[in-house]
């Protein structure tokens, strides 16, 4: 028994080359989630493509990434080898948790991937299209229950934006938070709620199996292979993307920042990254430099406004 154990461990050790440390990527979440898999995919591709000889991933879970963000700001300042993965969820979490640090305290480098939010109803539902659902909500907001991820997350924000766009009081929406898309999916399949809202990837297998009806997606244009209108197409001016990004430490010089940005660009353009995106079903939404900074500022502003409208932030 000892020998088998030892043998397997030696095998595992030999599989890992020992290089000098070039980048440490913090995933501000537990192993297994979206940010963690983004960080670990970056690690794999950066090593395989020779962008960096050695990449470490650390996990600091907690409170929508704000625990990790606070630790990153405190410990990584001025160190160009430190990176952190984050995303849209963090924007909302910083506001609702009244986090002492924000994305202004790090150096955002680039947006890497993104996923549209999807609105579905159970297959047995009488509601046939997004207009039918929004009309029902306008008639009696309490009677339309929405199952989605945690309160103040991207799903909740999208419902708030949709209500606002349709002229419904956003504080009146009957949003029921579940711990993640999985439990919400079960509630929708079991006909417990009127509608469901979560990442497209979460619902797509169910839609393909015919157990859910996809009413709309929140992207700015139709998605290949997905038979559903965008919200703006249906007449509601709502575009939401649950994006993931990578940021560097605060207090970097311009040269250091340019070096990190160049490495990340090399990563995003590499064949290995494109293949990983395709394998995992992530959309390539690479955006860097001033464009990304402007986009980020705009989204923070819009999110703050809608969280105030829903009543989650004072």
């Amino acid at each position: 028994m000892k020998h088998a154990l030892f043998g397997a461990m030696v095998a595992a050790a030999l599989a890992m080359p020992a290089f000098a440390n070039d980048y440490t990527i913090m995933a501000p979440a537990s192993p297994g989630g979206g940010w963690d898999s983004t960080a670990r995919t970056m690690q794999e591709v950066m090593q395989a493509e020779g962008i960096s000889s050695n990449v470490q991933v650390t996990n600091v879970p907690g409170a929508g990434g704000t625990v990790g963000l606070a630790q990153f700001v405190a410990s990584a300042s001025g160190d160009p080898s430190q990176l952190i993965v984050g995303g849209y969820v963090m924007v909302g979490a910083i506001l609702t948790n009244a986090s002492p640090v924000s994305l202004a305290d790090v150096t955002p480098i680039a947006r890497l991937t993104g996923e549209a939010v999807a609105i579905v109803v159970p297959a047995a539902s009488p509601i046939q299209d997004i207009k039918g659902l929004v009309d029902a909500m306008a008639a009696d907001p309490g009677a339309v229950s929405w199952a989605g991820g945690s309160a103040g997350g991207v799903d909740h924000i999208t419902v708030g934006l949709l209500a606002k766009a349709a002229g419904v009081d956003p504080t009146k929406i009957n949003y029921i938070a579940f711990s993640g898309g999985g439990e919400a999916t079960a509630a929708i399949l079991g006909n417990q709620v009127t509608a469901g809202i979560s990442g497209l990837g979460e619902f797509l297998p169910q839609v393909q199996a015919g157990t859910m009806r996809l009413l709309a997606v929140s992207s700015d244009a139709r998605i290949d292979g997905v038979d559903a209108p965008t919200l703006s197409e249906a007449g509601y001016d709502v575009v939401v993307q649950n994006w993931r990004m990578v940021a560097a430490a605060p207090g970097l010089s311009d040269e250091q920042k340019a070096q990190v940005a160049a490495d990340i660009e090399k990563l995003a353009k590499s064949a290995g990254w494109q293949k990983a995106l395709a394998d995992k079903g992530w959309a390539d939404t690479y955006l860097a430099g001033a464009d990304f900074d402007a986009q980020l500022a705009k989204e923070i502003e819009a999110t703050t406004a809608v969280l105030k409208d829903i009543g989650l932030v004072q």
């Binding site: 409170a63 948790n97 309160a151 029921i176």
Partner: peptide, 16 residues
């Protein structure tokens, strides 16, 4: 989880 309000955390982020 249902309303995003913090309870009994006393400003310690790790307790959130």
């Amino acid at each position: 989880q249902l309303t995003g309000q913090t309870r009994l955390s006393f400003g310690v982020p790790q307790l959130l």
